[in-house]
């Protein structure tokens, strides 16, 4: 088994996760991520299993909510937690496409 990921593989997963990595970090993650991936690769050795999925370990099903309003909060309440706001809006650097 390989000891580390290719640089482009590290860059790919960092891109999926939207995490910027320095060059040194990339080298380190190339090793660390490979160790983890070698671990999860063990799943390929497991044979003989059922098709049925377990998504959440509960026996019950969804109980539907009534179409009624219980909670509404004011923008002022959450404004203090918003890194950048402008009037009643949340502000971000311009979005590139719709």
């Amino acid at each position: 088994m390989k000891e580390k990921l290719e640089l482009c593989e590290v860059e790919h997963v960092a891109n999926l996760a939207r995490i910027e990595l320095t060059e040194e970090e990339k080298d380190q993650y190339a090793i660390d991520l490979k160790k983890l991936l070698n671990e999860v690769e063990k799943i390929s050795e497991i044979k003989n299993y059922d098709e049925e999925l377990l998504i959440t370990p509960v026996e019950h099903t969804v109980s539907l909510r009534k179409d009624e309003n219980k909670r509404t909060i004011s923008f002022n309440e959450i404004k203090k937690n918003i890194p950048k706001s402008s009037g009643n809006f949340v502000e971000v650097p311009v979005m590139l496409h719709e």
Binding site: R65, E68, N69, K70, R71, T72, I73, S74, F75, I78, G87, N88, F89, V90
Partner: peptide
């Protein structure tokens, strides 16, 4: 979520956590 489905109103008024 149980906040109002009405977005014609003033920005960020029909919201919750």
């Amino acid at each position: 979520s149980d906040s109002y489905n009405n977005y014609g109103t003033m920005a960020n008024t029909n919201i919750n956590e």
